[in-house]
Simulated assay, not measured.
Amino acid sequence: MSNAHHRKKQPVLVRRQLLDVAARLAAKQGMASVTLDAVSGASGVSKGGLLHHFPTKNALLDALFESLLERFDEELDERMRADPLPHGRFTRAYLLACASIREKRDDSSQWAQVTIAMLAEPRLRERWRQWVRERADEYVGTDSSLDAQMVRFAADGLWLADMTESHEIDATERGALIARLTELTTR
């Protein structure tokens, strides 16, 4: 009898391991490198074990996107809990979370690949649109002003600029930009 029959099953840990491997592959080699064979091989999980959790590559990519979105939501929630001012709280959290992605090495490269995939994949774009709509509805009372919308659009632009490394901006200028945008959320 093989070890697999005696090993304690830990589906949550295996699923997390598979997603982590997929994220690392995407970050290092691009989304095209995230194949079922590559993830299975790099994770040490049999292809059957992988297929148990993710029956298709799309299911794996969707789960990777959802995993990153969950972590993003957790960061937003944490930032909002620390913010005593209700008006614009979600927008400030969104701005600061978007601005900090590049500083988190693993998250930054994972988000870069997923952002590119989101632009190319209609189902991921739709999932992002759904997330944005849900948040807009949830925070309509505190974050629906024109200034708040403008700040969120600016945060998206900052995020895209960070992901594509398209703009050079020194730390002082970046800090001033973020401070000015944060100021707009209090109106």
Rank of each mutant, 00 (worst) to 15 (best):
L51S: 02
W111N: 08
G49T: 03
V140L: 08
R135N: 13
V132D: 09
L60S: 02
M1F: 11
A136F: 13
R89I: 03
A27F: 05
A99M: 03
T186W: 13
L69C: 09
V151K: 04
K47A: 10
A154I: 07
H5K: 12
T142Y: 03
A22L: 05
D83E: 13
L19M: 07
T56N: 06
L18F: 00
R135K: 08
A117I: 05
G41C: 06
K57S: 05
Q10E: 11
E78S: 08
G41V: 03
A63I: 03
Q10G: 08
H53C: 01
R15W: 00
Y94C: 07
L124S: 07
L119A: 13
R180W: 12
R24H: 12
H6D: 15
Y139V: 10
M150Q: 14
L50D: 00
N3P: 02
S145A: 12
A120M: 12
A179E: 11
S33F: 02
K28H: 09
S166R: 12
E121W: 08
T185A: 08
A97H: 01
R180E: 15
S166T: 15
G44V: 02
G41H: 07
T185G: 09
T172E: 15
A154H: 06
A161W: 02
M150H: 15
R187S: 11
A148D: 11
S46H: 05
P84T: 07
E78A: 09
K8A: 13
A32I: 07
R187W: 07
A99S: 13
G49N: 04
A32P: 00
A148M: 07
D37T: 11
P122V: 06
Q149S: 12
G88K: 04
L177K: 10
L119T: 13
V21M: 01
I101C: 05
L51M: 10
L177P: 06
A22F: 02
D106G: 04
L160G: 00
D73F: 05
R133K: 13
S67D: 14
Y94V: 06
T164Q: 09
L184R: 15
R187T: 10
N3Q: 13
E78T: 08
L19P: 02
S109Q: 15
D62H: 10
D20L: 11
L13I: 00
